[in-house]
Each structure stands twice: as C-alpha cells, then as structure tokens.
C-alpha cells in the first residue's frame, strides 16, 4: 500500500446525506475482476447524462473542482453495500480524503485498506467547511485544505484549523503504507495456538 503523505488539495463539496455505495459505484461496474480502473464510473448515475456526456449540474463536474482530492460530504457517507469498489472508485478518481460528520462502518474500514483517510468532524465544523468552500468558489477560487496525518489536523489558509481523531494503529498503517496481512501473519503462532486450543488441526497457511 502507498504511504499516506501530508498534502494540500482541492475540496469537492457534495452536499448530500446518506450517500450510499450504490451511488458511489453502481452495480453494473462490479463485474470486473480487477481492483483498478473504477474512477471513470464513480457516481456514474449522477455524473453522466443519458447520452453519456457529463451532467453540468452535478457537484463533481464543476470546472472549479477539477483535480479535487478531498471530498466533503454529509452524514452517514458510504452506507449500504460492503463493496470495496466504492473506495477503489474514489481513490482511482483522485480522492485521498473524505470529510463527513459520520461514516458507515464497512466503508470507513475499507478506506483505510486503500490508503484513504476518512475524517470525522462534527456537524458544525462540516457546515463551516461547506460555507468556506462556497465563499472561495463564489470568488472564483477553488477551496483548498491541507491534511496533516502526522499532526492529525486539517487546515486552510484562512484560519480554519481542526484536529481529528484516528485510531493510532490505523494511522501508523497509513503513514507507513504497511501490508496488513503481513503484519497479522507476524502473530501466526498465536493464531495456531488459538486453533490448537479449539481442536482445529488443519493448518495450511504459511
């Protein structure tokens, strides 16, 4: 996994609650057997018109938000299906951080497995970020945030600065780009001991 490095990026505000994984990546694109190439299908039903052209009304299609790497959303982001294709699509499109008041559990876990950072801010701070993004864009400028996973802080260049909480183990895994399975296999003796205590003999792993 690629290590997560601190960065400054353009914010794409998506002012909707309960964005489900069926919207993030509709089912017709789950037939592929690869992990890559899903970005072109991200938010497919919202992003494209029936003739296949981009819907100019959709939030992500605004010219000022092109190249966005931070998605700003409302509560319960990523609810529904466990499909990891959702973070694959977000990541392949270029997002590295999603900021929302709350996330669905499975989606939240899946982000960390793919080098993406989900950041929970309270509703008031998320409101404030939507306001600041709107003000910047009204002035013709993309809204940018800096994400610092070392200091666990999100900042803009106009005085916004908030720290966020993240599980220390997951933070380390992200910062160092660790292979989760390799890490767990360091405890293979403990796994074997559990199996043996529970009368399980067949062990083929290595």
């Amino acid at each position: 996994m690629q290590p997560f490095v601190n960065f400054t990026g353009v914010v794409a505000p998506l002012d909707r609650a309960n964005v489900d994984t069926d919207q993030i990546i509709p089912k017709q694109f789950l037939k592929r057997i690869e992990r890559t190439g899903f970005g072109q299908f991200l938010f497919f039903d919202w992003r494209y018109l029936a003739d296949g052209s981009l819907d100019p009304a959709f939030e992500l299609n605004q010219p000022i938000r092109q190249g966005a790497s931070i998605l700003l959303a409302r509560r319960n982001f990523g609810c529904g299906s466990s499909r990891e294709h959702a973070p694959w699509a977000l990541s392949d499109y270029g997002f590295r951080v999603v900021i929302a008041p709350t996330f669905a559990d499975i989606f939240f876990n899946n982000c960390f497995q793919n080098g993406m950072l989900p950041v929970k801010f309270d509703e008031g701070d998320v409101d404030e970020l939507f306001r600041r993004a709107s003000a910047a864009e009204s002035a013709g400028k993309p809204y940018r945030l800096s994400v610092d996973l070392v200091a666990c802080e999100v900042r803009d260049d106009a005085g916004f600065s908030r720290s966020f909480a993240v599980d220390p183990f997951r933070r380390t895994c992200l910062l160092e780009g660790l292979d989760n399975i390799g890490l767990s296999l360091r405890h293979v003796d403990r796994i074997a001991a559990w199996e043996s205590a529970h009368g399980i003999a067949a062990v083929t792993g290595k």
Binding site: R35, S82, R83, E84, P87, I106, N109, N110, Q113, N114, D167, N180, I181, S184, L185, V188, I191, E195, G205
Partner: peptide
C-alpha cells in the same frame, strides 16, 4: 460484512483486525 481487502486477510490468516 467485510470489504475485499478483509476477505483477503481472512483467507490468508483466518482472522480479522477488529475493535
């Protein structure tokens, strides 16, 4: 339910990282 990376983790280790 789990994601595909966790599916791979369970296949390889028969365990899951879980709080």
């Amino acid at each position: 339910g789990i994601g595909t990376s966790e599916v791979e983790h369970v296949l390889a280790t028969q365990t899951l990282r879980q709080s």
